[in-house]
Amino acid sequence: MLEFKVTYFFDEQHYVRRFIHVESQRAAERLIQSERDQYISFTDSRGIYHELNTSNVRVVQISQYHRKT
């Protein structure tokens, strides 16, 4: 499994970030596309729970993430 960082931008200053584990970049893209225009929920890396209406997002950015150990 690969780890991807997904950032949801609402405007130039406000965003929410989550990390997902899927087998490829394409799988990450398909997941994000399948969640379009609906509510999703997740807990971020700090343990904060989020409920997000993806229809309010202006830009979604996906990038593979490499954690430093």
Rank of each mutant, 00 (worst) to 15 (best):
S45E: 15
Y65C: 04
Q33W: 03
G47I: 04
Q13P: 00
D44C: 00
R26G: 11
H21G: 04
K5Y: 00
D37I: 00
E23K: 12
S63L: 01
R30C: 07
Q64L: 00
D44H: 10
E29M: 08
T69Y: 01
E23P: 12
L31V: 06
S41Q: 15
Q25Y: 11
T43R: 09
Q38E: 12
V16H: 00
N53D: 10
E12M: 08
R30I: 11
E35R: 11
Q25E: 10
R67L: 06
H21V: 15
I48G: 07
N53S: 07
L52P: 09
H14T: 13
R17G: 04
L52I: 02
L31I: 03
R30L: 11
R30F: 12
R67I: 07
T54L: 02
V60H: 00
V60F: 04
N56A: 15
F42V: 08
L2A: 04
F19Y: 15
E12S: 09
F19D: 12
R67M: 05
L31S: 07
F42K: 02
E51P: 08
Y15E: 10
Y15K: 15
S24Q: 02
S45V: 03
R58D: 06
I40V: 14
Y15C: 15
Y8L: 12
E29Y: 09
V60W: 00
L52A: 03
Y8T: 15
E51M: 12
S55A: 15
S55E: 12
E3A: 12
R46T: 09
G47S: 07
Y8K: 06
A28S: 08
R30E: 13
L2V: 00
F9V: 11
R26T: 15
Q13T: 15
A27T: 14
S24W: 01
V57T: 05
R17I: 11
I48E: 08
S34L: 05
H50R: 03
V57C: 08
T54K: 13
H50S: 05
L31T: 08
V57G: 10
V57Q: 01
R58M: 09
F4Y: 15
Y39L: 12
H14Q: 10
Y15I: 10
N53K: 09
E12Y: 07
R67Y: 03
H21Y: 08
V60D: 00
E12Q: 13
L2P: 03
H50T: 12
Q25A: 14
Q33Y: 03
Y65H: 11
D44Q: 02
F10S: 06
A28Q: 06
I48F: 13
Y49W: 04
H66I: 00
S55K: 08
I20H: 01
D37K: 10
H66G: 05
Y15R: 14
Q61W: 04
V22M: 04
S24P: 01
R17C: 12
H14Y: 06
H50V: 09
Q64A: 04
D44T: 07
T7D: 05
A28W: 04
F9H: 08
E23Q: 11
F42H: 04
E29F: 06
V6R: 04
T43Y: 02
H14P: 02
R26E: 09
